[in-house]
Write a protein that binds this DNA or RNA. Sequence first.
DNA 1: AAATCGTGGTA
DNA 2: TTACCAAGATT
Length: 376
Amino acid sequence: MPTIDPTAFSAALLAWYDVHHRDLPWRVSPRQRAAGVRADPYRIWLSEIMLQQTTVAAVKAYYAKFLARWPSVADLAAAPEGAVLAEWAGLGYYARARNLHACAKAVEGEHGGRFPETAAALKALPGIGDYTSAAIAAIAFDEPAAVVDGNVERVVTRLQAIDAPLPGAKPLIRNEVAALTPRERPGDFAQAMMDLGATICTPTRPACAICPVRPFCTATKTAEAERYPVKAKKAAVPARRGAAFVAVRGDGAVFLRKRPGSGMLGGMSEPPTTAWSARADGALGEAAAPFAAEWRLVGEIEHTFTHFKLTLDVWHAAVTGDPAIDGWWSGPENITAEALPTVMRKVLKAASIGTAGTDRRAAEPQTKGKRLHGTG
DNA sequence: AAATCGTGGTA
DNA sequence: TTACCAAGATT
């Protein structure tokens, strides 16, 4: 494997970054940085947690909402977990939101309200692992930590034509990044590597012709950049099936409950659902309902998670009394603020529970989910 | 240490 | 439609 001159490499990369960096809400631009503006650790941390396995486009609106509602780590630490989960609803990987809140409380309770300033200390906090600890340390505290995300893995495996498949090649990649990371401007270097991966060294059809570090790249010499990184193929996702029961009161309120605090959609809200059987053929009738009511099958929804595809039969009932299980009634004016993950919003939509306005019976054509015509 | 954990966009 | 991907962490 050829050795890259770190000084020449980072000079080329940073010169490109100074001109072509992305403008992002949580970012301090190189111009601002040179003028002495420091990144706010809270904002860097918040954005990094949100950006884990999540696109910049999806994060922007959530970042703005969180920052407006909780401008400081103290504000976030003082919030109820349920409020954080509700604000996170729709962004996915909900353990991130639980850990976000736990981390804010740890910073307040154990670190005097200030984020620790080294990657090693940051990594001890909830939700902060190898990547995030290095990123915060580099961007907010100028520590020359090796920042390795998916972008960097792609860039480095191409630079060095690393044929070893991921994730086994991670230690090798990390060492390469550590060797390349400069003492000066380590935060800009990390962000430059990620911007390069996001805009030039893309997964498909990389723009090698305009790449600022092309002279250092082995893979592009043989036009093989697109072959990297090498990854093992993923297994096909199995199918599961279950049922959801949407009870509606006369005033339009829907009965919701809180899911267990850990595991799938941990801590999030839902209309009561059955367990999700590994068998895709599980014919679940109203006998599976959590409480007796005049249940009527009104539709079904499909939702694909990371490791399985779920089909839920959607049952609906008009209810007068209170169910004998834990939960609460959520009125039409409150439903959008509930901690409902996307799959559960699909369920409510299939049961004609609107998320806008109060007329849940509005004749809105069903664009998603199969509308069934039961015995009416 | 392989499995678990969401969602939306795109080829 | 299917498959893969996007600033990974936890157990």
